[in-house]
């Protein structure tokens, strides 16, 4: 489904991704962990198509297409979804109108008819339950004045509505209390299918108790320095990142 080969990217003249390799197959859940500043959000942003980043080399194939050649909206149309670490507040655009525009834009990309108001509302109602989304939040401006937890929940709600093939969750767990975390994780688990995949970015193992990964990767200084199964996450939880940093530095020395 997603194949990343030797991906390198920079912001300004600072290289951040220094050769990422990653294969994700349908049905899989991958977790990327790593200390702050190691490039996790950068990887997510480059995949979603943020233009601030310059791709220096490597390739990314998504569903057989060269992802890096597509505009952000085309990537979404192909079924890529990024749950943002910091969802932006957009005053004056109602949550509902925004979602409707998104749903129908993606349908249009796929050559499907737009959803009419009735079907759209039905879809929304169904998905709201999944993440305990409050109706009041839907009528408000997009993310405006939402608490940290409400913003994260709104991201997962959007994911539920848009049903992506590959969802990248960038620290969706940070700032959530345990109840909210459970709700979010539940929502994500309900959306898991044999034909979609999830990439969970986090630096706490806590979320991975609920969304159990098939693979865990450690990103450090722009490279994936370790890969393993969920045991690796437990090990990181126990020992912190310092031992990995030390090992990597020893290898580089």
């Amino acid at each position: 489904m997603l194949s990343i080969k030797n991906l390198q990217a920079a912001i300004g003249d600072k290289q951040i991704l220094k050769g990422i390799n990653l294969e994700i197959k349908p049905g899989e859940v991958h977790a990327i962990m790593g200390p702050n500043g190691s490039g996790k959000s950068t990887l997510a942003s480059v995949l979603a198509g943020r233009e601030d980043y310059e791709v220096l080399g490597g390739e990314v194939i998504f569903n057989g297409k060269n992802l890096l050649e597509l505009a952000p909206e085309e990537r979404a149309g192909e079924g890529l979804f990024l749950a943002f670490q910091y969802p932006v507040e957009i005053s004056g655009v109602s949550n509902t109108n925004f979602l409707k525009a998104a749903v129908n834009a993606i349908r249009k990309y796929r050559g499907e008819e737009p959803l009419d108001a009735v079907h759209f509302l039905r879809l929304i109602k169904e998905k709201m339950k999944l993440v305990n989304m409050d109706q009041a939040l839907l009528n408000r401006s997009l993310n405006e004045g939402f608490s940290g937890g409400e913003k994260k929940r709104n991201e997962i709600f959007q994911m539920a509505v848009l049903e992506p093939r590959l969802a990248i969750l960038d620290e969706t767990d940070s700032g959530l209390d345990i109840d909210a975390l459970r709700i979010v994780a539940n929502g994500v688990n309900t959306l898991r299918r044999a034909d979609n995949a999830i990439l969970v970015i986090t630096h706490y193992q806590r979320l991975l108790d609920y969304i159990v990964p098939d693979y865990v990767h450690v990103l450090y200084q722009g490279r994936i320095v370790r890969s393993g199964n969920k045991e690796l996450a437990l090990e990181l939880e126990e020992k912190g990142y310092d031992w990995i940093k030390a090992e990597v530095e020893a290898e580089n020395a």
Partner: peptide, 14 residues
């Protein structure tokens, strides 16, 4: 640019 990217990342054409 930020809101623009957010909307585009949800599939809405530029």
């Amino acid at each position: 640019e930020e809101p623009l990217f957010y909307l585009r990342a949800r599939g809405i054409a530029e």
